[in-house]
């Protein structure tokens, strides 16, 4: 479900656009591996207390 929400948010921004997402630890593996599988890039990641802030760059032409 978390990745579905991220994917929907990515669809609202243009190709190569950037999106910041906050993820709980338990969602990290599935969301990041799904992002990588769909060609998006995690360009920055840092811990913010109990969650992680990820900057995601949308894949340039695939999606939809």
């Amino acid at each position: 479900m978390t990745f579905v929400k991220v994917k929907m948010a990515l669809q609202k921004i243009g190709p190569s656009g950037k999106l910041d997402i906050l993820l709980k630890e338990e969602a990290l593996k599935n969301v990041i591996s799904s992002l990588k599988a769909e060609g998006h890039k995690v360009t920055r990641a840092e811990r913010r207390d109990t969650v992680f802030l990820l900057e995601v760059e949308r894949e340039s032409n695939r999606m939809e």
Binding site: E25, L28, K29, I32, R44, A45, E46, R47, F52
Partner: peptide
């Protein structure tokens, strides 16, 4: 490595 430490978390 960017030292984000996600590997440690997962």
């Amino acid at each position: 490595c960017t030292f984000c430490k996600i590997c440690e978390a997962v």
